[in-house]
Amino acid sequence: MKNLLNILDLSTEEIDSLIKVADDIIADPEKYKEACKHKILATLFFEPSTRTRLSFESAMLSLGGSVLGFSEASSSSAAKGESVADTIAVVSGYADIIAMRHPKEGAPHVALTRSTVPIINAGDGGHFHPTQTLTDLLTISHELGRLDNLKVGVCGDLKFGRTVHSLIAAMSRYTGIEYVLISPVELKLPSFVKQDYIKDKGIPYTQSTDLDSVIGDLDILYMTRVQRERFFNEEDYLRLKDSYILTEEKMKKASPNLRVMHPLPRVNEISTAVDSDPRACYFRQARYGKFIRMALIMDMLGVTV
């Protein structure tokens, strides 16, 4: 039985295969509209999420399957103190596959011990969110036609941003990757991420505190939010916040082939004026999330078309 807890559970060959199916779904969605007929996806969201849950549900419905589940712990037996293991033992009798989000790190690992159906981790606290990374990889592949030989800039909160850590872990397995790490000193990439996925693999990287000076070199700019609450004092926040806001002015210095990505939700780190720039692909990225989840659900259920 297949499960997906961490993006690194998938080999690059498996990721390539999922991307190939997702590309085919994008090209011909009709072909897949009954691929998962009579199959049920349970979306167990122990904490609220709009995008991820709806993306999973839309993916299953587009495959002709059905969905059931809950969107917050208060509307499940977890509110009565039921353990994750017991909830999963029950739900795996009602569904063919489970996508779960939980605020506690490692909750999907507990789910595996009791589930009789495949488990997809739809986010466990600040730990892993593999389908976001799959979404990011499909976006890069679809927009730029490759996952290798790329200069990838990641910008904003690199310290706490799990999407950035997972993306770096996944991209570091492809050849010709170079990173530009753009953040305030306070929010630098944690040393263990840098060591394990960049330095140990001999991948070239540069660090910068200034987006403006490096944007011109990038193929990908992956933006994340710099949150006020991450700073020790208001003064530092006010001093730094504008350095990491992407504006039309900054975009003028970027390559015509740049792609700007963002896991969303965006607050103010990308000016809305940038949205109409064809290089801004974050809303397309959210759409790709549905297609890669369709490919993943099919794969985990052993369905082919």
């Binding site: 994750v84 605020p103 506690k104 600040g126």
Partner: peptide, 13 residues
Amino acid sequence: KNPRCITSTEQEL
């Protein structure tokens, strides 16, 4: 010792 770990709330694990 991670307070965000599932073992912090599900104590039978």
